[in-house]
Design a protein around this nucleic acid. Sequence first.
DNA 1: TTTGCCATCCGAAACCTTTCGGAGAGGTCG
DNA 2: CGACCTCTCCGAAAGGTTTCGGATGGCAAA
Lengths: 351, 351
Amino acid sequence: MSLSRIARNLDLSITTVSRALGGHHDVSTTTRLRIEAEALRIGYRPHEGARRLRRGKADAVGLILPTGLGRFDDPFFLRLLSAVGPALAEAGLDLLVSSAPPGEAELAAYRHMVEGRKVDAFLLARMRGRDPRVDYLQNADVPFVAHGRSASLRPYAFVDTDGAAVVAQATHRLIAFGHLGIAFLAASGDLSFSTAREAGWRQALTDAGLPATAIFRAEPTEAGGFRAMHALLRDVAPGNIPISAVVCATDRMAVGVLHALAETGLRAGRDLSVIGFDDHAFSSHTAPPLTTIAQPIEAAGRRMVAMLMQLLAGAEPETLSEIMPAHLIGRASDGPAAETSRIETLKGQTL
Amino acid sequence: MSLSRIARNLDLSITTVSRALGGHHDVSTTTRLRIEAEALRIGYRPHEGARRLRRGKADAVGLILPTGLGRFDDPFFLRLLSAVGPALAEAGLDLLVSSAPPGEAELAAYRHMVEGRKVDAFLLARMRGRDPRVDYLQNADVPFVAHGRSASLRPYAFVDTDGAAVVAQATHRLIAFGHLGIAFLAASGDLSFSTAREAGWRQALTDAGLPATAIFRAEPTEAGGFRAMHALLRDVAPGNIPISAVVCATDRMAVGVLHALAETGLRAGRDLSVIGFDDHAFSSHTAPPLTTIAQPIEAAGRRMVAMLMQLLAGAEPETLSEIMPAHLIGRASDGPAAETSRIETLKGQTL
DNA sequence: TTTGCCATCCGAAACCTTTCGGAGAGGTCG
DNA sequence: CGACCTCTCCGAAAGGTTTCGGATGGCAAA
């Protein structure tokens, strides 16, 4: 099971066995062959732990899932994991996963991995506007690649989706449909993906000379979307909804919005247009099927791993960044604004 | 940063420092205090890798996510991870995650972790009827705890949901509603959770003297449920559906079924009753809100970790098992069978 | 013959921890 | 005074790997 065992069996030194198996040049072909045969015979596998101790590297990367309030379900992370796992494995790196709610516990989880030298680097997901994880890791001089941007003094390596551009595109689609009161349902919690998407919505409205005032925010879950839309509908006289379309920061929120509409007897896609973001598996099976935006999560995960390898090979973080395009998928939850709806909209612009 | 550094600074031996920090008794209080102060001063943290090498343990457990065909979204795994992560961390164990599609690649992933001595044990999820992972791990003598049961010669430690009992209960609810043609939509792929749930459905029908013939199967995804229901409706004359209710193996499938119904103009809960399983976050926001079954995933995850600790402490696998109850949540996707539907049902029993 | 070079091999240290088996000092007891 | 015990401490080995700095022997060039 160990180098010493092979060395003993073959009456060679441990050094020679190590160098033979390591593919170094100063071992004769005959010896190398003998060693390889013996290694195969006894089923030798290097002891990763010993190797890592000696090399001073953990050969592992950490990923700490930001648990939400209450239940934690977001398909985003699973899709990221399923792409990142194999890519990392291929590079010979282990993936250490933990989870913690943002806050002190989260930083403690990072510290735990860093101080125990369990990982060489991190993968960060779901960036926040001002992200304490970035500060900590930069200070501790631990390399990392993030999915998403956040405000930070020093640049870092990241992959991001061009949320602003594609949401602007989606908003223009609504404008072309004749909508005038187009709201944005933002995610609470200073999440940068939401900020970027909101900027796209704002830009599109401004470009069209429309006011970007109808913004409301909620937890980025189905329940959050439901509650927000429900509150909006409740506070307003029936038939007098101040908006005719809503762009949601996530598909999950859009599902909640759809539900709130259905409950009030409003038809999504006709009485009110709804657009989501993510194109999760359920999004093509809602009622009506959700018009949404597909972002390349799996590709982003693989790209993040590739960047991590470069970082570990000594590349400078500021040279590593990529913004990936997302694309709109038109389904049935949006459509032309009804005449009445247009009129109501003009009346009730303030929200 | 290391014991030797403390020892050097204090002019003591490494042994003494190790024993002081390890809480052994043969160190004088004075020395212990000096050592602790110095450790604090230089910010000493034991090197996990070195400790593990010496102790011959990895202090880590593996979890390999069974990637599905195509996209991999199932909220189940995320909920499991978010419970398992903190529980493991508290026990001082790391969680190594990877992902692989069932088959040769999956076994290779397990072998990779076992042979590289990266983990001491595994957590298994989504058991299959005849599960090669169980055989491999039992042969390799690696401890593990599974979520779900599977056919195996030797017993193993597991936590499972009592899917049969609760699905029987759900089926009885449908029977009480007057349904006579109650179908089961099973998950393809020899998944044991589906088999158990199917058994519950069968049992309830048999108890009620109803034939349990209407079973069809599909991928356990929204698309799978949609396609299956769509095919069923397409092959049948309108108004002549041979069933009036369908119990789905998972919520995701139920969402697909709901979609297929909506597309055909059928009203779930009135024309056809639908019951799911899992109570995922989106399930209370479908149209109509889904009647489903909540299973304690987070509690199961914590229980699995507790069992794992016992296993690592030397407990015998056959002494470790727990079957957890699940409970029905009545919402709006099921209801009394319509008169016509009852009649049609009697006509079209064969499916 | 000396010198130098190449190919092949190896001892020992290092990575950091834990632990076995003492050792020395001081006290107690007969 | 010697035997024995307790308290406190430590050297060295072990865990498995990598790697620095040689060492040996053979052979060709000078």
